[in-house]
Write a protein that binds this DNA or RNA. Structure first.
Lengths: 158, 158
DNA sequence: CTCTAATGGTTGCATCATTAAACTAGATTG
DNA sequence: CAATCTAGTTTAATGATGCAACCATTAGAG
């Protein structure tokens, strides 16, 4: 992570997410993990990143509770990296990234894969945002409200 | 030109999106732009990044068709940075990032803002993924299929 | 018309993250 | 018990990032 400007203490939840998984490799590691990749060498081969970086990233993801290490599973005495619920919770973010690419990429014909639902094998719908009473919302239909101040007196940026 | 390992030529749409907006500042700049920030100095004050970095990021976003510059609008002879449709298309990604933070952050009480729908002022629903016939899908209910080879050519806007 | 402040950048330099590659060391295979 | 696989650590070179200082333009005051 190149930055010294950490957003941990920022009140913006987007910044906080980016602080956790907003670097180039973490998202791809989680993507791989969702596909089923679980071993150090597998991640390294599939993503082609340097091993020292992979070490650091995996450890960071484990520290953050996004991945967990399991002692073994397929016979060998090595360990596996498995997604936690928090890690699986990244799925919608990845879907959103994918769909943005599908919709706006300049060369969509280069996109190699399609996300389908397993049961029917058909492409999934586009993610949509709804109000509590079920109206579809675009960016312009939303606003940011200050969180009702709880007991915390923590600082927060607008 | 953010990194040496570029994913431009990668077939994974997630990698392609990350290649375009996956750096720490771009997402936050788009977030600000969605809120209404449009001036160089405004971005700089609100995000607190160095001006040279801001220059590079804004130019990159303009080059990618995410932002566009407008000559003026509020009297002053300077330019504004406005979102294109491609830029506004990032909204669901930001919502997904926000909601991940809201759901899994270790100190959710530090989150300062809530995304509400303008009309009712109530929090929005969680983004959900649906199959074409309307069933909600989790990560495990989906699979990746190879894109139907070449013949397809370009996909239209739909 | 000059002085000054604000806006919108550009240029240089130091730092730190990233990379590839070499090296370690235990596990597994043969 | 030699070769190879796994999961790292260490190292040096590279270059992207961040900070500060420096230009250029515009606006306002006098």
């Amino acid at each position: 992570m190149v930055k010294r400007t950490s957003f941990e203490r920022d009140g913006c939840p987007i910044a906080r997410s980016l602080d956790a998984i907003g670097d180039w490799w973490s998202m791809l590691l989680i993507r791989e993990a969702l596909i089923g990749t679980s071993r150090f060498s597998e991640f390294q081969k599939r993503l082609g990143l340097a091993k020292n970086i992979l070490t650091v990233r995996l450890r960071a993801l484990v520290d953050q509770g996004i991945l967990k290490t399991a002692p073994a599973s397929d016979g060998s005495a090595y360990q596996e990296y498995l997604l936690t619920p928090k890690g699986r919770g990244v799925f919608p973010i990845l879907v959103a990234l994918r769909q943005w690419s599908e919709e706006f990429d300049e060369r969509p014909e280069e996109i190699a894969t399609i996300l389908v639902d397993k049961e029917k094998g058909k492409p999934v719908r586009k993610l949509e945002l709804y109000s509590q009473d079920g109206r579809p919302l675009s960016a312009g239909d939303t606003a940011l409200k200050r969180r009702p101040a709880g007991k915390q007196g923590k600082r927060a940026t607008a």
